[in-house]
């Protein structure tokens, strides 16, 4: 189990945030979306984040990656270092990864050229063509993606399932120390869900961690999180294990609304 009292720069902690608040522009004003989140993920841990639509889960994930639309207050720690002042590419090079809920298409840029540039940036060295090709072929086989996608334009005309598989393929290649997986299971059929889940498990190890944002129990049966958080109205209102997932499947989120209100009150 995660320990919120553990110092964020403790060697066993791979990722942490403290009193994270995320603001988004709302006309001339700012709107507070994430209202003070504390999270500690130890090496080897998988965390799940569940919550109703509109609770701010995707905002939280994008803001942790450094999306320019958001203003962030609070600390973000990756492998014992503050990363909240870093640009997105600097966070990524240090090992932070975001699997997008809606991966963006970049027409005219082939998957191969993109991945080669991305891997070279992550590893700090160009990768010889032959070695790269072999690595790519293996990863495509692992994720059951047709090798013809290597020469297609990035996410351009890909189905929802193909996009999500390519996200996890990137996770496998980039070997991040901490991954934010934003509804990676949405829009997947049963077979694709299995492949994506296996990819996530393959990319997980004793040294890294992940936060899986989802609405559904299905992927959690495959990925088996160590810790489950419920996120409502910008707060983490409950933290537990898989039993919490079952309770949510049975009872929905309403029964936690009171806790959300309490959390709101305690922050006010």
């Amino acid at each position: 189990m995660s320990d919120q009292m553990l110092s964020p720069d403790h060697p066993s902690v791979v990722f942490a945030c403290r009193n994270l608040r995320v603001f988004v522009k709302d006309g001339d004003n700012e709107k507070l979306i994430v209202r003070g989140v504390d999270l500690t993920v130890r090496r080897g841990e998988k965390h799940a984040l569940m919550g109703p639509n509109g609770s701010g889960k995707s905002t939280l994930a994008a803001a942790l990656m450094g999306h320019p639309s958001y203003r962030v207050e609070g600390d973000i720690w990756l492998e014992g270092e503050r990363v909240d002042t870093l640009e997105p590419h600097e966070r990524a090079r240090r090992g932070l990864f975001l699997s997008f809920q809606y991966p963006v298409a970049v027409p005219g840029v082939t998957v191969a050229n993109f991945l080669r540039a991305s891997l070279a940036a992550r590893r700090g060295a160009e990768i010889p063509v032959r070695a790269f090709r072999q690595e790519l072929n293996e990863a495509f086989a692992t994720m059951s993606i047709d090798p013809s996608f290597i020469t297609r334009y990035l996410n351009d005309g890909f189905s929802g399932g193909e996009k999500k598989k390519l996200e996890i393929l990137q996770m496998l290649l980039l070997k991040p120390s901490f991954s934010l997986l934003d509804e990676t299971d949405s829009g997947l059929d049963i077979d694709a869900l299995k492949i994506v889940s296996e990819g996530i498990n393959l990319a997980s190890g004793p040294q890294n961690g992940l936060l899986l944002v989802t609405h559904y129990q299905r992927i959690l049966n495959h990925v088996q999180p160590d810790v489950v958080h419920v996120f409502m109205n910008g707060h983490l209102v409950r933290t537990g294990g898989m039993e919490l997932v079952s309770a949510l499947e049975e009872r929905g989120y309403d029964w936690l609304a009171d806790e959300a209100a309490v959390a709101e009150g305690s922050r006010a």
Binding site: P68, E87, H89, A92, P103, A117, S118, L119, Q170, L174
Partner: peptide
Amino acid sequence: FYLESRCLDPREALGL
């Protein structure tokens, strides 16, 4: 942002 989240600096991302 997508490309930058994949380790490419803003100039590399714009170039792509």
